[in-house]
Design a protein around this nucleic acid. Structure first.
Lengths: 130, 130
DNA sequence: ATTTGTTTACGAAAATATTCGTAGATCAAT
DNA sequence: ATTGATCTACGAATATTTTCGTAAACAAAT
């Protein structure tokens, strides 16, 4: 229960979080520029969205200079986790395995990635033996 | 482009689809009864939702008897696929592998399931060699 | 045939999410 | 100090999603 996270991000908010998780931090303009590529919305729309997200506790911001700098206030991992859980629940009959296989089947993975996953599976098995 | 599927289901609609995918088909009352366990909403709310879904082409229905029987009109697989893709895109930095590992890490899987996944990985590798 | 319970249809309210116009602040360059 | 560009704040319009009240149809039981 560290930072406010009982607010589940909306679709648009997720897009912004995604951008900030990658960038690390950024101004409204920077975020907006990325957003524009996949979406068309005005600058003030992005601004407003980010302000709301700040109010909700989804973003932190540094207002020390005129141009504010924003940063995600919730971790990518915990958000991923929440979304995954919900998705497995409602759409994958509660089976994580089903989700994993579906993901592997339709999204080309390189040999390196497959190896990484295999290795990870081994790690899990080791843990379970204990 | 068989049946209308350009309509992405909303959150509530997904819950209903999930139920129908499991049941195969059902009346409003039946769906509502399942829904009630995790949510609280009136009967007519569920009814309306399912009517809308029918209009959108998300559900088929049999109106031959007084009590209509509904069934999902879009496949679970294609829906899973769409959702996975979007999720990987916005929240997992475009990496399916990242999603897979996150899912494996936090949702306990039995040894049987792990074996199944391993086997599936081998299948994929075989395919890629060709 | 009247009552009772269950169903669909419809419309509209309520709640949420998204969008943007406008005004005022700030700063750099003229 | 005026202009121009860029930024934040704010409020409100739009759009979308969710909710439910009410009425009419229907069937089974009294």
């Amino acid at each position: 229960m560290s930072t406010a996270k009982n607010n589940k991000p909306t679709e648009s908010e997720l897009e912004i979080l995604g951008i900030l998780w990658e960038k690390g931090a950024g101004t409204v303009r920077e975020v907006h520029e990325v957003l524009e590529k996949s979406k068309d919305a005005g600058y003030t729309t992005t601004l407003k969205l980010m302000q709301i997200m700040h109010e909700k506790g989804l973003l932190k911001r540094d207002t020390s200079s005129k141009t504010h700098v924003y940063e995600a206030a919730i971790s990518q991992e915990s958000t991923q986790q929440q979304l995954l859980t919900r998705m497995i629940d409602t759409v994958f009959n509660g089976s994580a395995t089903q989700l994993v296989m579906q993901a592997l089947g339709n999204h080309r993975s390189s040999q390196e990635e497959l190896d990484m996953i295999k290795q990870y599976l081994n790690t899990i098995e080791e843990q379970q033996k204990k």
